[in-house]
């Protein structure tokens, strides 16, 4: 199975997302922001970083990249898409996910090993976890404070679309401790912490991040939706 990893100018954790996909057993395919061709990938990861320097607004420019037009269409067609950190911001700017990510409440960039509680496990990227499972994933961002209006927040809760919450501390002030959410269909997931940095005992605080990548392989195998069925 082939997982595409997009590189925007200013993407930083793209190599790490590709490594995580490989460790999970997938073939990592590098996608270039200027190339609308998804090269028949079965899923896409929008990696962390500072796309276009995060100038204007995090993710605001990246959403208009040629590759994003294809990804937005494919996502609406069911292509599994995971947005990590800056990728989450891009997904919100692209309106594939509700809400927005704003400056951390304490106004500082923060990098720490963060405990999360997994909630929605019906998505393409979290089906390998058990509801309530506590996982340890690095968080590192300056603008990771998830905000949305109460109506949206209530809807996310009611529809079980919160995929993970911060526990044992909230690193950025996100409303309702929300660390990640999914769309109605469950194929598009955005998460602020970095699963791709918790996939090796030697470099991460845990192996918990691997679950996101093995989950998508599982769901792809199950649904048999392979070889760019979205194109």
């Amino acid at each position: 199975m082939r997982i595409g990893v997009v590189t925007f100018p200013g993407s930083l954790d793209d190599g790490d997302a590709a490594r995580a996909a490989r460790i999970a057993g997938a073939e990592a395919v590098r996608l270039w922001h200027g190339d609308p061709d998804l090269h028949g990938v079965d899923a896409v990861v929008l990696p962390g970083g500072f796309s276009y320097g995060d100038y204007l607004r995090c993710g605001a420019i990246a959403r208009f990249a040629p590759v994003m037009e294809s990804i937005i269409d494919a996502a609406r067609g069911g292509l599994p898409v995971l947005g990590i950190c800056n990728g989450f911001q891009v997904l919100c700017e692209a309106h594939l996910l509700p809400g927005a990510l704003t400056r951390n409440q304490h106004l500082h960039f923060r990098n720490r090993d963060q405990w999360l509680k997994v909630e929605a496990t019906g998505t393409a990227w979290t089906n390998g976890f058990t509801p309530g499972q506590e996982i340890l994933i690095p968080v590192k961002n300056g603008e990771g404070c998830f905000v949305a209006d109460t109506k949206t927040l209530d809807a996310l809760e009611a529809e079980g679309r919160v995929i993970a919450r911060y526990i044992k501390g909230n690193p950025n002030g996100s409303q309702r401790d929300i660390a990640g959410i999914t769309n109605e269909a469950g194929n598009v997931v955005g998460i602020m912490p970095h699963p791709e940095h918790a996939v090796e005992a030697l470099t991460g605080p845990s192996l918990d991040g691997l679950g996101f990548f093995t989950s998508v392989l599982r769901s792809l195998a199950k649904d048999g939706q392979l070889a760019g069925g979205q194109q």
Binding site: D13, N111, H197
Partner: peptide, 8 residues
């Protein structure tokens, strides 16, 4: 306030 994880 520093990223120590990037590049993996």
């Amino acid at each position: 306030q520093y990223d120590r994880y990037v590049l993996g």
